[in-house]
Write a protein that binds this DNA or RNA. Structure first.
Lengths: 95, 95
DNA sequence: CGGGATCCTGCCTGATACTG
DNA sequence: CAGTATCAGGCAGGATCCCG
């Protein structure tokens, strides 16, 4: 829970299972996340070796986030949670 | 995450995998949880049909919490998280 | 484009005391 | 024993502005 328990952390990682993402992409997909929070969460995940931060020195700047091997091993957990969510249709019950 | 994402919720459910528990037992096991918070979390889990609340009308009063079938289906998620925690020894790395 | 710095706020949570 | 009531605080998170 320390790793994936944050309000946004879960969604950030989930997006990365579909492939690398850029800072701006996260801002669009994670509707409403502030740059401050996104920045903090990404930094934390990087420190925990869950994601990689790759910088392409171009103009304009280009930074890409991707899952590390450690991050990839989280997939079974996400799959289990996804199945559970489907089985009980949690979101729909939220009214 | 809405279901198990709370600070204490995860631990409450985990304890219930080992069998029913009483209010007082949770207070001892979950070191430091306040009765207020415990009460709120238990009520939430009951509303979400994750746990059962069974009252034994005796003196002194006796209330027992146990997992519902829905709650039981969370087990694979907990197993997956447990394995991941063991594999990466998360707690030990916490300094 | 990808963030850092600052300021501010609400809600979650803890502490404590009390009751059926 | 199993909670509820009340009060107070901290910290995650949002809003905004700015810079390399």
């Amino acid at each position: 829970m320390n790793v994936i328990g944050g309000k946004w952390t879960f969604m950030i990682i989930r997006e990365l299972f579909y492939g690398p993402k850029r800072f701006g992409e996260f801002q669009k997909i994670l509707n409403g996340i502030s740059p401050r929070t996104l920045s903090i969460r990404l930094k934390e995940l990087e420190e925990e070796k869950i994601i990689n931060r790759t910088i392409y020195s171009e103009i304009p700047p280009h930074v890409e986030y991707s899952l590390t091997k450690k991050g990839e091993t989280l997939r079974p957990i996400f799959e289990a949670m996804k199945e559970w969510g489907n089985a009980w249709d949690v979101l729909a019950e939220e009214k």
